[in-house]
């Protein structure tokens, strides 16, 4: 679990004064990181926030996406993010298949709360161990043309390995939001979140809608996996850190709100960036848990929750 995002190298500076350049760098790095966190969390926002499917195995699919991007990049040299977008239909199908099993075995019998959770936990664990068996525990990374490029505006750094995932992630989140609010399918998903019986009365099968929406959430996980391996080296066990993170972002932003998730991701990104700049990167993983507990204790409905 030591491979935490080492995006910001803490610099030596006198404790008393905080240089503005450092502050500006911390904010920019936090925003860029927040964009990546939005990609990590948007899928959880759909499955957990809207469909009420507590998919704690979401990070396992992210890591799977990282490794697929890695293999293709390693063998054929394609850009990992392009690969992940091209392969997202596969992740979509995987998601629909998993939801099918989940529905047949747990949701239909009303056992989703305990056994469904255990099921996803098992999937998380199996994926991690299987990746360890195939690839070992070494850190893997990809090489792209922009990996080592950094733009500088004044004293503020814009590392391209963060900027590119940030931009694609923003496009993906906005796309998901448009899909959910502007199309019939999207409105059906929002309706599932509100009242499944009413949906049945309208002649729509909620299970089918949930299946497709769950597929969508896993497809975003695959793309987020490619972002992850562009940003930092990946090994199978780092997925666990993103469980708390993704759920913290969803709860902080407000359940079932995509804009809320985006806002929560930026808040978390900046909070982590400040923590790593001023206290050291080894403390960063504790931030998401702190935010999660604080939200649950003081405002369980989140920032933009209904």
């Amino acid at each position: 679990m030591s491979g935490r995002l080492t995006v910001f190298r803490p610099r030596l500076f006198p404790r008393m004064e905080i240089p503005t350049a450092l502050l500006a760098n911390a904010i920019i790095a936090g925003l860029l990181l927040g964009g990546f966190y939005a990609a990590v969390s948007v899928g959880v926002s759909i499955s957990f926030g809207m469909l009420d499917v507590v998919n704690i195995a979401h990070p396992a699919f992210i890591i799977l996406g990282s490794y697929i991007a890695y293999i293709v990049n390693d063998r054929l040299g394609f850009d990992p993010i392009v690969v992940s977008l091209a392969l997202s239909p596969l992740f979509f199908l995987l998601g629909t298949a998993i939801y099918r099993v989940y529905y047949l075995c747990f949701e239909r019998r009303g056992q989703e709360s305990l056994r469904g959770l255990a099921f996803f936990f098992g999937i998380l664990f199996i994926t991690e161990v299987a990746l360890v068996l195939v690839f070992g525990v070494d850190y893997r990374m990809v090489s792209t043309r922009y990996s080592d490029v950094t733009w500088r505006a004044g004293e503020v750094d814009f590392p391209m390995r963060l900027v590119v995932p940030f931009l694609v992630s923003m496009a993906m989140v906005v796309g998901v939001q448009l899909l959910l609010t502007r199309t019939f399918f999207g409105r059906a998903v929002l309706a599932v979140a509100q009242d499944q019986l009413a949906l049945r009365l309208m002649g729509v099968n909620p299970v089918r809608v949930k299946e497709l929406a769950f597929g969508l959430s896993i497809a975003t996980a695959g793309v987020a996996g490619a972002f992850l391996i562009v940003i930092q080296p990946v090994q199978p066990a780092i997925g666990r850190e993103f469980i708390g993170l993704a759920f913290a972002v969803c709860v902080l932003g407000g359940m079932g709100s995509i804009w809320g998730t985006l806002l929560g991701a930026f808040v978390l990104g900046i909070a982590e960036s400040f923590t790593s700049t001023f206290f050291g990167p080894s403390w960063a993983p504790a931030v998401s848990f702190g935010l999660l507990l604080a939200t649950l204790a003081f405002k369980p409905s989140g920032l933009l929750g209904r």
């Binding site: 666990r240 913290a248 998401s288």
Partner: peptide, 10 residues
């Protein structure tokens, strides 16, 4: 459940 998982990381 989620908080207990996150507690382990923290």
């Amino acid at each position: 459940a989620i908080a207990s998982l996150a507690l382990a990381v923290v």
